[in-house]
Amino acid sequence: MFWLNTKRIIRTGLLSFWRNGFVSLSSILVVTVTLFTIIVIIFTNVVLESVLADMRSKVDVNVYFVVSAPEPQILAMKDSLNKLAEVSSVKYVSREQALQEFKDKHKDDYLTIQGLDELGDNPLGARLNIVAKDPSQYEGIVKTIEDKNALVAPDQSIIDKVNYQQNKVVIDRLSEIIIGAKQLGFLLALVLMIISVLITFNTIRLVIYMSREEIAVMRLVGASSTYVRGPFIVGGMIYGVISAALAMFLFWPIAIWLARATTDFFGGVNLYTYYIQNFFQIFFIVLMAGIFLGAVSSFLAVRKYLKV
């Protein structure tokens, strides 16, 4: 009996969807707008994350070592820093590399190069270039570096200076911007989602309101609540499936159009490439959202008219 009823509910849902052509079309368009909003939110988040990651990668802290600092001690510190969860990368720049970088940087500055040659020895110490996963974590990392320094070289500090204090204002400001941007993005996404969901829910409620007499008749001829409600839920799910496909299809040319702009201006993320590479994951999310929205809206809207 369960399978027979399920088969009948699905068949009735499909038939009603087909026969209520104009109403179905209107509902699909509204659900499509909602799902399109979800896609826009997903892609906006991708762009925002890319921009923020780009900004984060531009912030780093350098630990400059004294000229006499032994290389094994510096490498030991590098290894222990690499193990920290907050650290994204640690790059070791030897004294020789530092000298070469300096020369390359000042190759057109004859006086500086001459002065360097007159010294006869390499005046530059080695350094560690540290990039944190989040700018707000630099303070903790610097504290760890100072502790490590005390452990690695208890008698005499091997660290000449850490440029954190110089960059602190910029880092703190950037941390605030990143947190603010994330919160604003989340808030906007939430507001857009709530508006879209409410519009979808009200549209489906209106569709079912038009069928209230039909529901009353079904109840009077002895149909159970499940049997009355089922076809409407199936209809809602069909709206979701078609709308998901439509929203993905509509976003395709937009992704192509936005690809160049996002690559050039937003930290290198190519929206079209992202769309193609993650097509099935995004489609799955949108499809599930569509089915869920359609089914739940129908379920709630029919409930009101079942009390006959």
């Binding site: 038939l15 039909e214 008749v217 009077l220 001829v221 002895g222 159970s224 609540s225």
Partner: peptide, 24 residues
Amino acid sequence: HRNEVTKLRRRIGMIFQDFRLLPN
């Protein structure tokens, strides 16, 4: 109970002045 009302109605045939057929 509501479920029992459904079963009761299956034992009663209803005819209305306005027919109340399902239009679709």
